[in-house]
Design a protein around this nucleic acid. Sequence first.
DNA 1: TTAAAACGGTGACAAATGTCCTCGCTTTTG
DNA 2: CAAAAGCGAGGACATTTGTCACCGTTTTAA
Lengths: 203, 203
Amino acid sequence: MDLDVFTFELTMFNTFKTYIQAQADLSDEEVQQMYDLATERSLRRKEMLLQEGEICRYKVFIAKGLLRTYRIKEDGSEHIIQFSPENGWTVEPESYDKVIPTAYNIDALEASELLLWTKKDFVDLQESIPKLKSFSQRVISNSTYIIRERVYSAISSSAEEKYDEFVKQHPSLFARVPLHMVASYLGVSRETLSRIRIAQVGR
Amino acid sequence: MDLDVFTFELTMFNTFKTYIQAQADLSDEEVQQMYDLATERSLRRKEMLLQEGEICRYKVFIAKGLLRTYRIKEDGSEHIIQFSPENGWTVEPESYDKVIPTAYNIDALEASELLLWTKKDFVDLQESIPKLKSFSQRVISNSTYIIRERVYSAISSSAEEKYDEFVKQHPSLFARVPLHMVASYLGVSRETLSRIRIAQVGR
DNA sequence: TTAAAACGGTGACAAATGTCCTCGCTTTTG
DNA sequence: CAAAAGCGAGGACATTTGTCACCGTTTTAA
């Protein structure tokens, strides 16, 4: 039992350390400094991390697993804005930045292991670790480029083109995410994707 | 003639000063410092500011007029990513940040008057004017919230819902932009918007 | 000022996509 | 292990949306 907890923490830490040193080139001490302020959290499949109406108070690193960020329309339909696999981050930026209730939900598609930082702690870390600050800005910039591309795809492509792009650009996600969620992410119906894939058999 | 140039510059400067002091609370000296490093540029209707393949080397403030950022698909169709009216900014972030050729085009829908800063000058200004730095980050953050909302709209709404949202959220733009460009921005055909608006007559 | 371009409406038709339903099969969960 | 839920294929049909062609009016620009 104690051994399990130890193994868990060791894995979390190692995963994070490997990631952040490769991406942001932090020293061992800086990584430890970050880790000391992090909260660990495990999520079972389907468990919620953030619900509509709550305030997003954490910046989240996904050490293991897969999360999704989605929104529910008045008619009850779910629309997925983002998938967040391991070795990446998730946050609801507007709620986090402005400290206002979110319109989004975040939950786990697979059992996941997370590291959480409060906004205050993360800001402090950015101040004391300059490389973390520039790295964070790079992550945010990258997400901007990606989301612009997504808008372009949404307004310019047919369902089939969107599907093909998704498979091509996110092959590992495609292998892990059920088709109806890919459909939700792309903004088309499950049945449409089903048809497309059938029509493509043999191509 | 000299008077015209003088009037033009005076207008540009005053517009910018009013905007930036209201938004970023800069001192008169700081505004002057920014203005000293800016290049003025006028664009006639349809004139290009940035073409696909070029590098976006400027951050642009629109003192007067209206720009659009769009992309051309392989099949030749145009898709508008963004409208940029006066008292706002435009830039192609990925090309600007990474200094790589852009996939986008920017041109003027109306005769426009602009202030341009090179990346180097703008970075220097941000260093010497802390309020400008935080203001710039706020502008970027805001565009992130807006573009996420746009993705959500694109994947969750019908053509009619998108049209209604656009009219409601951008009434002044709607009054200035031809319908087929609204269609291009929303990712639907001109004819679809035509039908929607006809069906709505009397409502 | 006048020819050309832009603009939006229109109808007919085709194509794409959504909706609703059922059916096996697989995975999850208690 | 067994019941329940999840999942994707599939068919039938309705609806939405796109495409094309044409027209009259307005705006633009030489």
